[in-house]
Design a protein around this nucleic acid. Structure first.
Lengths: 179, 179
DNA sequence: AGCAGCATGTAACTCGTTACATGATTGA
DNA sequence: TCAATCATGTAACGAGTTACATGCTGCT
């Protein structure tokens, strides 16, 4: 249900074609709402059907250098505005690593170290990437929109930092326990 | 794919009936792998079919005071052990609040404050609950299993703390921007 | 001429959610 | 005895994933 609004948000920032959207999802919105191009095309169709977006139509069929471009309609903006103000439950956490550690607790011959190290490495990489974006995109005085976008990025950074710290802590705890 | 192993883990800790499992998921494993009773019953059937669990059968049909009880088989333990050691990708984040904030960045008349305050309140509540569990369940010297379980709980605590801090930070930033 | 990759999809599947059903049993 | 709730499900739906298909176009 949020994918449509993620797309409306992305299109509000800039009218785009399907692939452009898919690529922008990979780079920015997708950090907290990932979506494949298949999903995006499907949702674009239903958004068109609902009149929340429209096609900048030049009559010619879409092709390589001439992709379909979509723009948010007034209805679309209204729908996004209404949705953005609503309250929702927090997203549910589903983390298989925690299940694995519980499994290791139940099965004395399972060692979760490799899983932890693997996870630690991914968080370190992601943290670095986020910090690079932060340093590159948010320098100097920021307007309201940039400050809000930055706040979202800061959630990602805080989350990655916390996971890096937790993974290290858990590994240290395992080492301590062994000796 | 992880639900089956979450169930195997729970049953490894203690053989149980369907509802008992559902309740234990609500209290502990469900914090990082939630599951409804419908899901659990469905998965129990397929686990039975795969021979990874078995029914402690007393012949009588299941009823109020006499529920079906399930136990992990040797195959089930082996499957869990094999799965627990595998490496996996990190779980994908999908957080509509971040989409809402991006929407607020794109639409100048959307105020994300209420959504942030609501979210902050839920994280404060959850943090309190986790800390209470930590204080109650993990006192004194701990064996390996308890230490691992505690580490999982500490991930939850660290995560809630980080969200509480981030929500407060974001709200403060909004206040600062206004004046 | 041929291949990489652009742009757009379709189809099938998995997993989770929502809503409802049913018989048994305990407690007021 | 009547409501609550225990214990176990079924059915339909929704969202996301995986795998594959197709036509076009610029590059070599």
């Amino acid at each position: 249900m949020s994918l449509r609004f993620a797309i409306l948000t992305a299109l509000s920032e800039k009218s785009s074609s399907g692939i452009e959207l898919a690529r922008r999802f990979d780079r920015s919105i997708g950090y907290f709402w990932p979506a494949s191009h298949q999903q995006i095309y499907r949702e674009l169709d239903t958004l068109l059907g609902d009149g929340l977006i429209e096609q900048l139509d030049d009559g010619t069929p879409p092709s390589r250098g001439n992709p379909r471009t979509f723009r948010v309609t007034a209805d679309g903006t209204a729908a996004l505005r209404a949705w953005a103000g609503r309250l929702e439950d927090r997203p549910k956490v589903r983390d298989a690593l925690m299940v694995r550690i519980r499994a290791a607790a139940a099965l004395s011959d399972v060692d979760p170290r490799a899983a932890l190290e693997h996870r630690l490495a991914t968080h370190e990489r992601t943290l670095e990437a986020y910090e690079a974006i932060d340093a590159r995109q948010f320098t100097g005085p920021l307007n309201r929109a940039a400050r809000l976008q930055r706040q979202v990025l800061r959630a990602g950074i805080a989350s990655e930092r916390m996971w890096v710290a937790w993974c290290r802590d858990a590994l240290a705890e395992l080492d301590r326990a062994e000796s």
